[in-house]
């Protein structure tokens, strides 16, 4: 009898373990399934269009009866412009905030800033989009002319949206620099600022790089907010004018969301193919992050 109970208990414990293993496996399964389905739905396009043409043609007319075009270069360019500018704006501000939080801010102000970063991270992207449409776009329009719905507006909104990511991860990586470094630097008569730039930042370098890469991923993957402010024109940006910043642009994500509701046939396939490109971008960044953070142990914070 006793033996039976023991056996039952053992099986029970074992089955719970496997049940939990299944829970833990869901995430991994999801990644594999996502990869599989995205590729399965998007790859057939290459039966008709060569990858080179897909990536480097600027001719996008997927639903045309005669001579349809499946070139997404304008969208890749759009994504790159918008993301780069967002990083140019967001990274300095974000890192400055992170230094401020980790090293300088004390008491109430630090508390407030930290709450602000948290709340900023939680604001839905459509609210950012709405703010962009009603505040940023009119300002850009008044300053630069045109409609205001362009790459610049999109970058500004994205810059705001990636701030929390950059701030919180950079802050943690600065904080996790061993205290001894700082003390040693002070001991040599360095000022606080010299210590920050010459000791803390270099020591926290990989964490900050991780923060920037994460921010990049977020910016490339963001859909709704840029969709609402960046104009959505499926043409190459006009680099002659303000380096394309005043051009209305369409990014990879926008291309997917714009047509998905009605596209069919090859057009629809081409949208999934677009998502393959996006997916590869993101996965590359993801693997980079994991590679960098493996050493520094900050992935818990991301």
């Amino acid at each position: 009898m006793n033996l039976d109970r023991k056996k039952i208990r053992k099986y029970y414990e074992q089955s719970i373990k496997y049940l939990l293993l299944v829970c833990a496996g869901v995430g991994a399964a999801a990644v594999l399934f996502i990869t599989f389905f995205i590729f399965q739905s998007g790859a057939p396009l290459f039966g008709q269009v060569s990858p080179i043409e897909f990536l480097f043609s600027t001719h996008w007319e997927p639903s045309a009866e005669v001579d349809p075009g499946f070139g997404i270069l304008p969208f890749i360019t759009g994504s790159i412009i918008v993301t780069t500018l967002a990083l140019l704006i967001g990274v300095p501000v974000g890192i400055a905030c992170a230094i401020y939080l980790a090293e300088i801010a004390k008491g109430r102000f630090a508390e407030i800033l930290r709450r602000v970063v948290e709340v900023l991270a939680g604001i839905p992207s459509v609210v950012f989009g709405l703010f962009g449409m009603t505040v940023i776009c009119p300002i850009v329009r008044d300053v630069l002319g045109g409609t205001g719905y362009n790459a610049l507006s999109g970058s500004i909104i994205l810059a705001i949206m990636i701030l929390p990511t950059i701030i919180s991860i950079s802050e943690i990586s600065i904080r996790t620099v061993p205290h001894g470094y700082k003390v040693a630097s002070f001991g040599l008569g360095a000022t606080h600022w010299q210590t920050i730039t010459k000791v803390l930042l270099p020591a926290a370098r990989s964490g900050i790089i991780a923060a920037i890469i994460l921010g990049t991923g977020r910016a490339i993957g963001e859909t709704m907010a840029v969709y609402m402010v960046a104009g959505n024109t499926p043409l190459m940006p006009n680099f002659g004018e303000w380096l394309g910043l005043t051009s209305s642009v369409r990014t990879l994500t926008m291309n997917i969301i714009t047509d998905m509701s009605y596209a069919s046939g090859m057009h629809r396939t081409a949208l999934f193919t677009t998502s393959i490109v996006l997916f590869i971008f993101i996965m590359t960044l993801n693997v980079l992050i994991q590679f960098i953070t493996r050493k520094t142990k900050i992935h818990e914070a991301t």
Binding site: V31, I34, E222, T223, I256, I257, N286, T302
Partner: peptide, 17 residues
């Protein structure tokens, strides 16, 4: 590793999936 990766996938890809 895969669970970490899942966190980085943008929402539109989830939507498509």
């Amino acid at each position: 590793f895969f669970t970490e990766t899942l966190a980085g996938i943008p929402s539109i890809i989830f939507g498509l999936f």
